[in-house]
Design a protein around this nucleic acid. Sequence first.
RNA 1: GGUCCGUUCGUCUAGGGGUUAGGACACCAGAUUUUCAUUCUGGUAACACGGGUUCGAUUCCCGUACGGACUACCA
Length: 511
Amino acid sequence: MRDVRVRFAPSPTGALHIGGVRTALYNYLLARQHNGTMILRVEDTDQNRFVPGAEEYIQKSLEWVGIKIDEGVGVGGPHAPYRQSERTAIYMQYAKQLIDAGHAYYAFDTEQELEAMRERLKLAGVPTPQYNSITRTQMRNSLTLSEDEVKKLLEDKVPHVIRLKVPRKEEIRLNDLIRGWVMVHSSQIDDKVLMKSDGLPTYHLANVVDDYLMKISHVIRGEEWLPSAPLHVLLYKFLGWENEMPQFAHLPLLLKPDGNGKLSKRDADQLGFPIFPLTWKDPATGDVAVGYKEAGYLPEALINFLAFLGWNPGTTQELFSMDELIKTFSIERIGKAGTKFDILKAQWFNQQYLRAKSDEELASYLLDALKNEGIACTQDKALKIAAVMRERVTFPKDFWEQGKFFFHAPKAFDENVVSKKWNDDAVKVLTAYKDAVAALPDFDATIAKTTLEQVTANLGIGTGKILQALRVSITGAGGGPDLMMIMEIIGKDEVVNRIEYALQTIKVKVA
RNA sequence: GGUCCGUUCGUCUAGGGGUUAGGACACCAGAUUUUCAUUCUGGUAACACGGGUUCGAUUCCCGUACGGACUACCA
């Protein structure tokens, strides 16, 4: 087997879509598995769609998820440059080679002429007008014009394109690694533009030329490219590179969670989940789209989730580190059908990875959030909070957002709990408990518990009956981590103060 | 419309000529947790349809339906 060299080749037309990240990931996994090379090539041949900052964004995104580029934009390499806009001379050379070999030709048709042709064909009952082996005989190109005319037009720098001369009758077959043999008749392919009138190549030419020159062994890309893959096969053939042609693998698309169609930013916005790895601010509109990173997803969780969107190991193992994915991944186990995007599963992965972290790491999430809030907290306290919260969080931000009561006494109390559990017995117990706690020389979770049991026993009231009332007085809510631990963490004085405040506030409310 | 691709629980999927069609997420129920969550146990739930081939098809073949992609001097 030849050296595995794969490329991720995005266009810098905006933020990197999550589906693009998955494509990059599959490429990366294959490369690493075979000690191959992962290449980043920027396909910026459309000047009109260029978006400033997009290229840097793509690089940063890949870096964040842990996909390392061996060769390409940002790192260089033996086949530099890796930005297609810097390789225009190369493409022209091969376009000319195709012309010389009779596989391509100059076309001088204006947009209006093209439009007129389409109109005429439609009127004649042709459903899909194409510039092809039939119609090209009626257009203004180097096949219909005399040699002298063509020469003059070129010398006068009349705007023109170079088109591929697709044969009239030929069966083009391609063996896709995921889909098997795909056959298309050349009559269904039109004479695609290879070089645009601005002197830049189209995707089709640039992609084939670069993949060849960069010795790409596998082209792993989205299924949207499948229809044009036969065209690319044709190009390899005409360029004389048939034997060096890479293997193709067309990935199933990421579909929207409900309904049909491919996943779009709009869907993600509507359903409230990110579509980009990192937060992206559209330079044109100023719109900001929150990324997976900023939303609290861990890169290893995102990767694990993405890897399973269309691929599976064939075992019941669900959790895979990048290294494990590299070992286990195989193109053969990629599915054919489109995959609906389920953000709930992503959250589950995130939860798994978050819980696997040490208390120290979890505490650091809390400490970071507290720093932003300007709240002081000891390492020891943060560690304790992390320990009691770890089973209930999905995102790092949850430590702070769901644990605010550790730092702020509740100002309001859950109405529902109050109406159900706040009664004379509760007031009796809380009053006595508050006094008992205040008199304690030492205080921790165990003592808090035994003290509570003593108080309730003395009053002849079941502990369970008033526990919710105690909780709501301490945290303001009806649910949360172990209450005794919460009391230990906030400390004796705070416990007393909070009960006191609740006793006063809630009583007033009820009355 | 045309071309190409696809179709197993709600979702991601395993499987593959004879299986109680397996797992995960989600959901529901019970246990534990004097709350909630966690954890544990259990449960609901799928081979799109119609023809073949076959002793036997979810599995192979052909249609149909449905879905998707593509159909630019965009990638």
